[in-house]
Design a protein around this nucleic acid. Structure first.
Lengths: 155, 155
DNA sequence: TATTGTTATACTCTATAACTATA
DNA sequence: TATAGTTATAGAGTATAACAATA
């Protein structure tokens, strides 16, 4: 017969990271489906969120905040600009730097996207008690804080 | 001056899905770095986990469990086989079907990878109280259960 | 020289759809 | 015809590294 493995299966499934990834993948995937109709991807939405509520941001700044490289932001921003959702302007004071900002069109679109995000959250998490929901939110935010954003790639 | 947006930033950041994705991305990324040294990717590890503790599984079965398409499993399995970590055998009873199984080498490797997973979990979640940790685990597993795996693609 | 971005390249992950083999 | 898998193709999402412009 088959030998009992040296490590139990239950041990294997106990990793928080595993479940996090599993659930997150499903949630993101479902959200992507919803965003599709609006011609926006999840990564683009994430960038739009960063640009929202602020006058303008440097690509490097967003890169650090989102934990992406500058190159990745360039490409994401390119796509938003192509879609008329963002603008890129060279800084006057220091012409090496740039500023990313949302267009009026993007600002009009965001509430719609936020509704989709609400719907998606509800679809997956509406069964949670208020307490569980709060714990999740708190734990996730704490983790971000405790871990910091220092994991950001350098180049 | 800038008008106050119709939707507040705090509202935007309140989506559980957002934080889930944010944290999960960081956790997975860090884990990928750790797995790199062992020549395994996170997706490959996920498949290995599914094959672990069972004698053999059909590609379709794993696909459903992981929420991936059969095509995706084919490619993942190809890579594991290439690395000598899995085998693919045609079923005797019904030659349309196949069985995926781990090799002895994979079974030896898994405890090592599990240690890395432990380390990764610790790196991100060691600050959690036991209660928070349990809540997270319970909520994530419940979500999987409640939502079911029906979101699985068809083709 | 250091900093900010861009570009070229490449790889993972995954889907969709067409195709093959078996039933 | 239905089912199980494979393959070809494509696109998102990123990274790395070389490069250009500016300071």
């Amino acid at each position: 017969m088959t030998r009992t493995p040296a490590i139990s299966v239950s041990h294997l499934t106990a990793h928080l990271g595993y479940w996090l990834r599993y659930v997150s993948n499903h949630v993101s995937h479902a959200f992507a489906r919803k965003l599709e109709a609006q011609g926006v991807t999840v990564a683009e939405w994430a960038l739009m969120r960063e640009l929202f509520g602020v006058t303008s941001v440097s690509p490097s700044g967003v890169a650090e905040k989102l934990g992406l490289t500058r190159g990745a932001i360039t490409k994401l921003a390119d796509r938003l600009i192509e879609k008329g959702l963002a603008t890129r302007t060279r800084n006057v004071k220091d012409a090496r730097g740039q500023s990313l900002a949302l267009t009026a069109s993007a600002r009009r679109l965001i509430p719609k996207l936020a509704v989709l995000a609400d719907q998606n959250d509800a679809e997956f998490f509406s069964h949670l008690s208020l307490e569980d929901r709060r714990t999740m939110e708190r734990v996730l935010k704490e983790t971000v804080k405790v871990r910091g954003l220092k994991s950001t790639p350098v180049s």
